[in-house]
Simulated assay, not measured.
Amino acid sequence: MDRWINKVAIVTGASSGIGEAIVKDLVKKNLKVVGLARRLDKMEKLKNDLKNEKGAFFPIQCDVSQEEDILKAFSWIEKQLDGVDILINNAGKCTMDLTIESSTKNYRQILDVNLIGPAICTREAVRIMRARNSSGHIIYINSVLGQNVEFFKTTACNLYAPSKFAQRAMAQIIELELQHVKSNIKITNICPGLVKTEMPAKECFEYHNYVLAEDISDGVIYALSTPPHVQVKELTITPGPTRIQSIQL
């Protein structure tokens, strides 16, 4: 991770869960980390918790389903931090209702957060990285539901799986496009199994083994730690056979 010291990383969905865990690890490894999330109060608390660490945390209130929010955030990053070297597309959205009974509003929210938002963030990050001739790294926090559809007792999480299938394909397309324009930017797709965060319904943890947000952050650090000639294209992280002790959210 030494080559990333003092570099700039953007983490979406940084106010809790996997995003929060990634922010903590990157700041501790002496990076300048910009967190994008709607809940600014939670990120401000996180900033205070990290004030004595090697790196720095810059929280920006941003709804990744709103293009204007994203563009404003990237503009600030360009002006104040001179660009970006790492982008972690982590923000996610799912609903527990059945697709056959859901509202169109829910459809659009899932696709905006899980697909359109990451596409806009990727476009803006790549623009900046290419202008700086940076060998950057873009990571998508996907899901095993982007590999195989599953049913969790009463729901398949609406359009969450289709959006993650599409995000996985998008990551592959971005990688091919970067090769086409002869860019050294890396692309990694990380597919967690069930993770103990706020997003899944609590009932899920009663019937399924799960991993922790810190386990997914470990995967991010692993991908970032590889030398320039190595690219981790996809990493799947799922619970092992031993169930961990239940924790409160």
Rank of each mutant, 00 (worst) to 15 (best):
Q66W: 00
R243T: 10
L50Q: 14
Y160V: 05
L111F: 12
T12G: 11
C204T: 09
I100T: 15
T226E: 07
S135Q: 09
R132I: 03
I141N: 06
N106C: 07
H137S: 09
I60P: 04
V232Q: 12
I237C: 07
I216N: 06
F205A: 01
L26T: 07
L98R: 15
V33A: 09
I70Q: 01
P200Q: 08
G92E: 00
A201L: 12
N114W: 01
K164A: 00
L249D: 14
V232C: 12
F58Y: 15
L81H: 09
D82Y: 09
W4Q: 12
H229I: 08
N142R: 00
K202E: 14
I22E: 14
A14T: 06
I88D: 08
I138Q: 09
N106A: 13
D112V: 06
I221F: 00
G13M: 04
A91T: 09
S102M: 08
S15K: 04
I100G: 03
I120T: 03
V211E: 06
L81K: 08
K93T: 10
N89T: 03
V33F: 13
S65V: 10
E20N: 13
R127E: 07
P239I: 04
T155M: 10
Q167Y: 00
I70Y: 04
S75R: 12
E206A: 13
S217F: 02
V113L: 05
A171F: 02
